[in-house]
């Protein structure tokens, strides 16, 4: 299986504080890679580096490479907007725009210059269908996105990401604000999405990582301690620190 994204010997600093240490991670195409680890281990930082979300933070330093299809996304001359178009992100809190369901999805394509109404309608329908929310909102496309339930809002945000036609979807704790049923719906959706997209998810919920992902990386104090098939990590981890973390013997 091809590596869709890779980090190579990644060191990352906020000011003088090093938050990632020599992280090399291969994210396979059309697979779900989960990143787990205690708070402050660097997993969200790592996720945000994958589409240059940390660029806006002052006093950061990055050594090493982040590759998308083998190309370093931090190389000189790379268009950040283009990177973020190819690598979309879904956040912890559902954050629909205070606009209609339709406009939430059409926003991205419009920003990229798409004006054709028929085309936009098609893209809205397709995105909402893939995000498994079409049946619930198809009769209320002109209703505010904020009027939806939390779980629906999150699927709306996933649909909004899909409308840009990304290749990779980053998910930062996408279910932590959702109830268990909405969580299961998102997890089911992820299994469908991975047929077409590469997904990287950060989660505090180890059972969720175990349920949804193909490969899991365990980060501790900025170091990628262990990275392997998910069944290996949760069934027979090789590193004692992984074992201790996932069995709750340290925290």
């Amino acid at each position: 299986m091809e590596n869709k994204m890779q980090t190579k010997h990644l060191d990352f600093y906020y000011g003088k504080k090093q938050v990632l240490k020599n992280v090399s991670l291969d994210m396979k195409e059309r697979q779900i890679t989960a990143l787990i680890g205690p708070s402050g281990c660097g997993k969200t930082t790592l996720l945000r580096l994958l589409n240059r979300m940390n660029d806006v933070i002052p006093e950061i330093r990055l050594d090493g490479d982040v590759l998308l299809d083998g190309e370093n996304i931090y190389a000189a001359g790379v268009d950040v907007v283009e990177v973020r178009k190819r690598v979309g992100m879904v956040f912890q809190q559902p954050n629909p725009f205070p606009k209609t369901v339709f406009e939430n999805i059409a926003f991205g394509p419009r920003m990229m210059g798409q004006k054709n109404r028929l085309y936009l309608e098609e893209i809205v329908e397709r995105s909402l269908k893939v995000a498994a929310i079409w049946d619930e909102v198809k009769d209320n496309l002109d209703k505010s996105g904020l009027a939806l339930s939390g779980g629906q809002q999150q699927r709306l945000c996933i649909a909004r990401t899909l409308a840009i036609e990304p290749e990779v979807i980053l998910m930062d704790e996408p279910c932590s604000a959702l109830d268990p049923i909405s969580t299961l719906k998102i997890e089911e959706l992820m299994q469908d999405l991975k047929k077409q997209y590469t997904i990287v998810i950060v989660t505090h919920n180890m059972q969720q990582a175990a349920r949804v992902s193909d490969r899991t990386g365990f980060l501790l104090l900025g170091e990628l301690v262990e990275y392997s098939e998910t069944s290996e990590i949760f069934g027979r981890p090789r590193d004692q620190r992984t074992e201790d973390y996932i069995t709750g013997r340290f925290g």
Binding site: M206, F234, G235, R236, E243, T247
Partner: peptide, 9 residues
């Protein structure tokens, strides 16, 4: 309890 790793084994 959703046991993992050696606990599960």
């Amino acid at each position: 309890q959703q046991p993992m790793a050696s606990d599960l084994r």
